[in-house]
Design a protein around this nucleic acid. Structure first.
Lengths: 231, 231
DNA sequence: GTCTATACCAGGATAGAC
DNA sequence: GTCTATCCTGGTATAGAC
């Protein structure tokens, strides 16, 4: 039986940062990025991504002008365009890279757990902690999905359904093993997903009420377990 | 003891439509709207609002050009500007008018109910049914809140907290009367709100899975009642 | 690799004819 | 009340100097 994963431990064992994300991006797109030195490229990509998320989450990606982005990132317009070919491509890059990172961490942290109850809890904790560390990315991703080009839009929807399916599969497994009572697990999974998303979509609200991520996690686990307990 | 409000009945007894909303808007802003004939004004406002919601929900309000809006609404650019002074004002108008309508209906439909359990159910049903009828407005409102000017933005946040508080108050009342078990009602209210919002934010998902609003409502009531049942 | 200067176009907004 | 024609700002994108 594994102990509860707490937030501090999560941060220590899981390597997630803007820098990692940008390094992955650089290594995976060497051809299309005109800058060749890794140190320089990663440093600037971090500045660009940070600035883009910060401005976009304030006023929306399409309302962000590249002049603004250039000022906030501390790079000239010309320099920006050595990292991406168009504003739309920048949007795609941010979304794609974030999705990859999330999938990797989430799957990684729950694999090998057999007990559905423990696995469910672990998945909830990892999802919440991830969205706590990468809040600006999660918020951005949610809000800007509909502005993506068709192909990327489709992939974003698939990713959303895929993570939801991870939860639904755990729930169904638990039901088969008579650990959870028989309810509509598709709806339960959707509801769970909605509450997980609320954590990063309404961060201002929870911050104002001084709700920590661990308190929210405990509440969520309690709620879902109470609902699923055999009666 | 009241019977469950079903969706069909709701549609019959509650008068909500774009036209009503636009008539209210016209009557409340006679001075600032340059058109004087009610019939003409309301007809065109409906066309403008419908077009604006449809385009914005596809690609975002700030990405919608007024030329596009003018084409979709079937009015010239010049005509558009007799109904609002600027694109930003249009955004404010839509948001403000929708908020008023929702408050009116929601408060109206739950007032006078004493039993917390029945009142909670009624509030959930009314919220879901309202967002079903006005889905495009709810989606728009959620997605575009952050693009509002400072003052309207503040009001939108207040409205969000106000409706949440309606739920939290019912929950706390039930707890005081020992009908619900003692849990953190602020968190329960927030979670409930998140699931209510998911209904209009992820409509495509529920439509694809053929989940009706009444099925979703029943699920939500079951989930929250199970959680709150005294143990 | 990065900057400045500039091209070019689309956007919001309005004047004035009908 | 509505339309057409036009203004002008500010947007994305790039060329070419350093």
């Amino acid at each position: 039986m594994v102990d509860n994963l707490d937030f501090k431990t999560f941060r220590r064992i899981v390597d997630v940062s803007m820098e990692d994300m940008c390094r992955d991006l650089f290594l995976g797109n060497r051809e299309s990025i005109r800058i060749k030195k890794e140190r320089v490229a990663v440093k600037n990509l971090v500045k660009i991504f940070d600035a883009a998320l910060s401005i976009s989450n304030e006023k929306g990606f399409s309302a962000m002008s590249l002049r603004e982005l250039s000022a906030e990132a501390g790079l000239s317009m010309g320099a920006l365009y050595t990292y991406f070919k168009s504003k739309d491509e920048l949007l795609d890059m941010i979304q794609r890279q974030g999705r990859m990172l999330i999938m990797r961490v989430l799957l990684n942290q729950i694999e090998g757990i057999e007990d559905p109850k423990i696995k469910l809890k672990q998945a909830i904790l990892v999802h919440l902690y991830l969205s706590e560390v990468m809040q600006s990315w999660f918020y951005f991703s949610y809000m800007e999905t509909k502005n993506l080009a068709k192909d990327e839009h489709r992939k974003a929807i698939e990713a959303e359904l895929f993570t939801e399916k991870i939860f639904i599969d755990i729930l169904k497994d638990g039901q088969k093993k008579d650990i959870f009572r028989p309810v509509d697990m598709e709806l339960a999974g959707a509801a769970l997903k909605a509450m997980l998303q609320d954590w990063y979509l309404k961060r201002w609200k929870y911050a104002r009420r001084k709700v920590t991520v661990e308190k929210y996690a405990a509440f969520l686990v309690d709620l879902i377990e109470t609902y699923l307990n055999p009666s």
